[in-house]
Amino acid sequence: MTTALLLLICLVTLGSAATAMLLRNLIHSVLLLIGSWIGVAIFYLSCGAEFVAFAQLLVYVGAVSMVVLFAVLLTRRSRTDVTVSADTVSRAWSAVMAGGAVLAVLLYGALMTTLPAASAHGPAAPVKQLGAELMGIHAASLLVIGMILTVATLGSVVIASEEPSGKKEDAP
């Protein structure tokens, strides 16, 4: 992919992510974040990792965002209560400092090290081969991941469910 295309994707993704973190309206934040996830998926496509790109779209854009939205809806006190209160300035500044420090370190690492030369065409990862490897070499990991997902689902159901004597949720 050309550098210009990469650059474009970067900017879009970064922009929507930054904006998502800054907005006060929760739903808007979520929607912008969806945008940044789509940007990441396009990046994956440009790198030739189609499977991952579609996985990204399916999982993040399709499922996680829905879960987040549901959580947003379930944790508001009234129909219009989707704005979050302002945070203190000192908190913002300390966050920026911390983030800046980490960024500095990471950029130093990224820019100062000599990286090996890239190959022209990326490796090929046909889906069939992926399937064979998943069921072959990485079968155990696949099972573990399956277990994790099962347990996580069950756990979240348990955690989020009402207590037996629990109060009913506010009527929307």
């Binding site: 300390s94 966050a95 911390a98 983030g99 420090a101 980490v102 500095a104 370190v105 690492g109």
Partner: peptide, 13 residues
């Protein structure tokens, strides 16, 4: 989280 980030920075340095 803040401490985590700063700790990572220190270690990296």
């Amino acid at each position: 989280l803040r401490i985590l980030a700063l700790g990572f920075v220190v270690l990296a340095i």
